[in-house]
């Protein structure tokens, strides 16, 4: 695994990765099966779906039914992968994923695209700020928020191979480039992107870019920050969180999600139980989504490097 962050956007959109990776995985494993709820075109898989209607099942705009069908396919011996936008892949079919999937011990991988502000021009109806909270609450679930294309390519097959309910939240457009192609990751192990001694900044997915930018800005102010990519929200890398909380004495979590039940909650729970430490947060506070470009919405909901810097300074002051 090699970090090649320099602040520039990834050269590959996640959608483009899916359009190649999913067909390849389906061709290589006859037990894999892919279901979509009328959004294949949005994941770059429509061409494959048209050519292979028995490998890529279009369920129409019926996410609850899709989740239940996935569970039935699991009973019949398949390993199903479902996709919809994050809101519909979480809230809209939650009870089906929970009961027909998790409770019934049927393995289902759910891809929820356009998390948080990435839903941008689709607006508030399509903007999931609570998907991580919902999926974290399912016993045995795995919840992943990927940073860039290289991480997706490496982590997704590992996620699909796991048991239980698995949720991948992922942008369709490119995030900030973090890793060299071919980098290797382990679910359950976070990644230390840079090391510092004054504070630990933890983030994942879309907000990792502004978190890294904040670390640079803090460095200019003489504050040295550790940055952790906690793409593995569940299982959380508790050992890594505790280690860096102890080393730096203060933590800030930045997430493209509601402050309730997401990465901040996971980290705060972990530290409260193991190593009480001042924890700040840069997250969506008591708000529904709204329409606009992602960068506008990031500003609107306070998910910027400036907010991370300010929160870091406040949290350090609480030491």
């Amino acid at each position: 695994m090699k970090v090649i962050y320099n602040g520039s956007p990834d050269t590959r959109a996640f959608k483009d990765v899916f359009s190649v990776m999913l067909p390849k995985m389906l061709d290589e494993d006859e037990n894999l099966i892919y279901l979509d709820a009328d959004l294949m075109s949005c994941l770059g898989t429509a061409k494959y779906g048209k050519a292979h209607p028995d490998r890529a099942i279009n369920c129409g705009i019926a996410e609850a039914n899709m989740a239940g069908i996935a569970a039935g396919l699991a009973i019949a011996g398949f390993n199903p992968i479902c996709h919809s936008f994050g809101t519909f892949a979480s809230r809209r079919c939650y009870d089906q994923v929970f009961l027909s999937g998790g409770y019934s011990k049927n393995n289902i991988t759910m891809i929820g695209t356009d998390p948080g502000v990435c839903a941008a021009m689709n607006g508030g109806t399509h903007m999931p700020f609570e998907d991580v909270a919902l999926y974290r609450a399912i016993p045995g679930a795995t919840v992943i928020d990927v940073a860039d294309a290289a991480q997706l390519e490496n982590v997704f097959p590992k996620l699909v191979a796991r048991k239980g309910v698995k949720y991948l939240r992922v942008n369709r457009k490119a995030n900030t480039l973090m890793y060299e192609a071919g980098s290797d990751f382990e679910i359950g192990k976070g990644v230390v992107l840079r090391e510092g001694k004054d504070i630990t900044l933890i983030s994942a997915g879309y907000t990792l870019g502004c978190t890294m930018k904040a670390a640079d800005a803090l460095a200019e102010k003489g504050v040295s920050a550790t940055v952790i990519d906690m793409f593995t929200i569940k299982p959380l890398d508790e050992a890594l969180v505790i280690e860096w909380a102890k080393k730096t004495g203060a933590v800030v979590v930045c997430e493209n999600h509601n402050a309730v039940g997401g990465l901040y909650s996971a980290v705060a729970d972990c530290l409260a139980a193991n190593c009480p430490t001042p924890v700040g947060r840069v997250a969506v506070e008591e708000s529904f989504g709204e329409v606009g470009p992602a960068d506008y919405l990031a500003e609107r909901f306070g998910l910027t490097s400036e907010h991370v810097v300010s929160e870091a300074e406040k949290t350090i002051a609480r030491k």
Binding site: G68, I69, G72, I75, F78, Q96, S100, Y103, S104
Partner: peptide, 30 residues
């Protein structure tokens, strides 16, 4: 289905068996 021999599907939250039955039938067909 995880507790009782011969039970093919976990049901009880009404409606959820219908989609699971679809998945089982589709899987068997494929």
């Amino acid at each position: 289905r995880n507790k009782t021999p011969g039970v093919d599907c976990t049901c009880g939250s009404l409606g959820q068996g219908t989609s699971q039955a679809v998945g089982i039938a589709l899987g068997d067909k494929l």
